[in-house]
């Protein structure tokens, strides 16, 4: 073997190893985090964690039932608020708007997507919390919903655009109006993708802490109705992790584990829906 060939083989082997190691590191971060959370918080994830209120400092036991319910209520509000706006906005972009309007709306959505979540929190504080002088579940849901809009909008639009044009023509040639075509052919053809988009947007905001600090605040007890400060899992993690008590640290680890598993499960479900096949073969 000539020295030159040997050198080339060496470079090739070296690069292959290096890229492989980097890929491995990228993947292992997720499992490291999961493992770390499981070690520190696994023991605290028990029936009480899901059913009991937090207990005062010094007592052991207790759970985060109020935070779980608070998160669920705010995510429900966020979905009800953000998903319809994103969904119908995407229909407008993909099916009705001219290219100039679409360009600006898309650009604005991308910028909104890039707005730091803490800024979204301040905005929601100024708009909802300050005028009513009240931290609330509503305000938290509003802030999270704002974040869901651009994510839902952009990915829904992509999936709608993926529906082949001949399907639109086929429906319209049968005498379907534009809206009928969208409602009976295009959205059904893209529904897997749209569902995935919504789930991913949901998973994305489920772990947001910053927008909730100024809006939902936090609460050690149940939050009745929709107009009172409420606990949430991410804020609970933040508060408990900063406190100087070992018991609270364990609870924070447990909450982190629960939150991460929830998000992972949503992601996996979303991918499973998508991989059952796009309904329409791409030509």
């Amino acid at each position: 073997m000539s020295p030159r060939l040997r050198w080339r083989k060496f470079v090739s082997g070296f690069m292959l190893t290096m890229t492989g190691v980097c890929a491995l590191v990228a993947v292992s971060v997720l499992f490291l985090i999961l493992g770390y959370l499981a070690i520190h918080g696994g023991a605290s994830v028990n029936w009480n964690f899901f059913t009991k209120l937090p207990v005062p400092v010094g007592e052991t036991g207790g759970g985060m039932a109020n935070a779980i319910l608070g998160s669920a209520k705010m995510l429900l509000l966020a979905t009800l608020f953000g998903v319809p706006i994103g969904f119908f906005g995407a229909i407008y972009l993909a099916e009705f708007s001219g290219s100039t309007t679409a360009f600006f709306v898309r650009y604005a959505a991308d910028l909104l997507n890039g707005v730091p979540s803490i800024v979204i929190g301040i905005f929601a504080y100024g708009l909802v919390v300050h005028p009513f002088k009240q931290y609330s579940t509503l305000a938290g849901g509003f802030a999270l919903g704002l974040m869901m809009i651009p994510i839902t909008l952009r990915s829904t639009e992509e999936f709608l655009r993926g529906v082949p044009n001949p399907l639109r023509e086929a429906a319209m040639a049968l005498g379907a109006s534009k809206w009928k075509t969208i409602a009976t052919v295009i959205v059904p053809a893209a529904y897997r993708g749209i569902l995935t988009a919504i789930l991913l947007a949901f998973a994305r905001v489920a772990g947001e802490t910053a927008p909730l600090l100024f809006t939902a605040l936090g609460n050690q007890f149940w939050s009745p109705g929709w107009t009172h400060p409420t606990a949430s899992l991410p804020v609970m993690i933040y508060t408990y992790a900063l406190a100087p008590y070992d018991d609270w640290h364990r609870q924070a680890w447990a909450a982190g584990l629960v939150l991460l598993v929830l998000i992972l499960v949503i992601n996996i479900v979303a991918r499973a829906i998508l991989s059952r096949g796009i309904a329409v073969p791409r030509s």
Binding site: P164, P166, L167, A170, A171, A173, L174, V185, P188, A189
Partner: peptide, 13 residues
């Protein structure tokens, strides 16, 4: 006035 297109385009139904 019905129409049939160049490529078969059945709906995903």
């Amino acid at each position: 006035v019905g129409m049939v297109f160049q490529r078969p385009n059945p709906f995903p139904k």
